[in-house]
Design a protein around this nucleic acid. Structure first.
Length: 279
DNA sequence: AAACAGGCCTAAA
DNA sequence: TTTAGGCCTGTT
């Protein structure tokens, strides 16, 4: 990887898996959107960012300093996903799935945002999740100007903890509203310390998250994987259930992919969902 | 129009 | 420990 700043933007050449479309469309995040040129813009950790492909490099529309302090970690650029990808290709099916998903990386997302987003995700499809999250940020996040446009940060837990379910009505997120507020109160009060949780064993983190009302096994595993960056977590949704049953029968032990079961899961999930159009 | 969506909760076997 | 029904809302 080479990094150089030029005319106020940062150009990065990647020597490892890095596919913008796959990273942002594989279902792990909800706030990145492509424009007509294929460039993606999103907001994470309170900062907006645009990324465009530029020949064999990627153009990050931020200073080199911001790239190094924020985005390098966010995109997990110091881990070799190519190596992990080849490692989880344990059979013909996983070889096909991991080839198909080559370029995916797991984003080091904000912990609270991940918790909140995956609570919203339950029993919803991606377009609707994105819509709800966007309204949420627009209503309760902070306004940020960037490249001539207006963006909104993800509202922090303290802010959300002071809201009522009625105030969340514009989100049209239904029965998930009290779940969101409950989680916000837990985080805001300090009763739930996500930062500390990220240093615990995955099993402890899982159990702690599941003690929240509205957080079950699936959502908790997503938060552990995408929010706490524990790459061995293995969320199983309906797509994964189908794929696992079809290729491995009724019993399956994700520890065959350890310590990267979560990444294997993402290849499997993205591959399984690839038949769906538009969603 | 009724069923379903990237679940979860509760009640009941 | 597993299963059924209900839940907000939007789409098909």
């Amino acid at each position: 990887m080479t990094v150089r700043e030029k005319d106020g933007v940062t150009l990065v050449t990647m020597d490892d898996d890095f596919d913008l479309v796959k990273i942002f469309e594989c279902g792990q995040c909800f706030r990145w959107n492509a424009d007509e040129t294929g460039a993606y813009t999103g907001v994470a950790m309170g900062r907006p960012l645009k990324i465009a492909r530029d020949g064999d490099a990627f153009c990050f529309f931020c200073s080199r300093n911001e790239f190094e302090t924020l985005w390098r970690g966010y995109f997990d650029l110091d881990r070799s996903y190519g190596e992990i990808r080849r490692g989880v290709a344990i059979d013909d099916y996983m070889k096909e799935a991991s080839d198909f998903g080559a370029g995916i990386r797991i984003l080091r997302q904000d912990r609270w945002e991940a918790l909140c987003s995956f609570i919203i995700s339950q029993c919803n499809n991606i377009p609707r999740i994105k819509k709800i999250v966007e309204i949420f940020c627009r209503c309760f996040g902070d306004e940020v100007s960037y490249l001539g446009g207006t963006y909104y940060t993800f509202p922090d837990a303290d802010r959300v903890a002071r809201l009522t379910a009625e105030e969340l009505a514009p989100l049209r997120c239904g029965y998930r509203a009290p779940y969101i507020i409950g989680a916000a109160k837990a985080v805001s009060s300090g009763e739930l310390d996500l930062e500390a949780l990220s240093r615990e064993e995955p099993g402890v983190a899982l159990k702690t998250l599941k003690s929240l009302n509205g957080v079950g096994d699936k959502v908790a595993n997503c938060v552990v994987l995408f929010g706490l960056m524990m790459l061995d977590a293995f969320p199983i949704d309906v797509w994964m259930k189908r794929a696992l049953k079809e290729h491995y029968g009724d019993r399956f032990d994700p520890s065959v992919f350890s310590p990267y079961a979560g990444i294997a899961q993402q290849y499997m999930f993205y591959f399984a969902r690839s038949g769906e159009n538009g969603k």
